[in-house]
Amino acid sequence: MSDKNIKKTVSKLLVVVVGMFAFGYALVPLYEAYCDLTGRGSDSATSAAAVAAGDVDENRLVTVALDTNTRDIPWTFKAGQHKIKVRPGELSEAVFIVQNQANRPVTGRAIPSVSPTQAGVYLSKTECFCFVEQVLAPGERREMQVRFVVDADLPERFSSLTLSYTFFSVDSPVEVAARRKILEPEATNS
């Protein structure tokens, strides 16, 4: 029988296997390139390194409106300024002030959003309090910074952006109930 031919077939097929495994990983940069091309993908996908490399556009000023909201949480949440003017490509900073009005410690988490949505990819945050749980003692007041860059490639049609944050209570009754149900179905006595 043709053992040599079998070996030949097998080694060719093994090359395909290894190649397709590599192709799986090659899909990662391909996907990112596709997202850059079409302007899709989340704003957090832009890496800090890419932000730092941007050139500052001295001829343009973009207004960034700062919007604050709270939901089911006894905190006041304000921005230091309502609007700031920034140059595309330049590292900017915004300040937010949050205060716990309750007489107990409360844990909250902020969820950011940028509008218009199409402009989201052009606003990159290099430092942000969002997604991290914030614990505030009774009556505690805290100032929080966000550092961000508006990409110099921001299309001309966007002259202003809105950066909005909403603070949610991590201990909200809905969430607590949901977590108890999922994580500890038997734990009614705790």
Partner: peptide
């Protein structure tokens, strides 16, 4: 199988 299973292997490895 040869063309698609390695891609799944890559995805779960990630």
């Amino acid at each position: 199988l040869i063309a698609s299973m390695p891609v799944l292997a890559g995805a779960v490895t990630m």
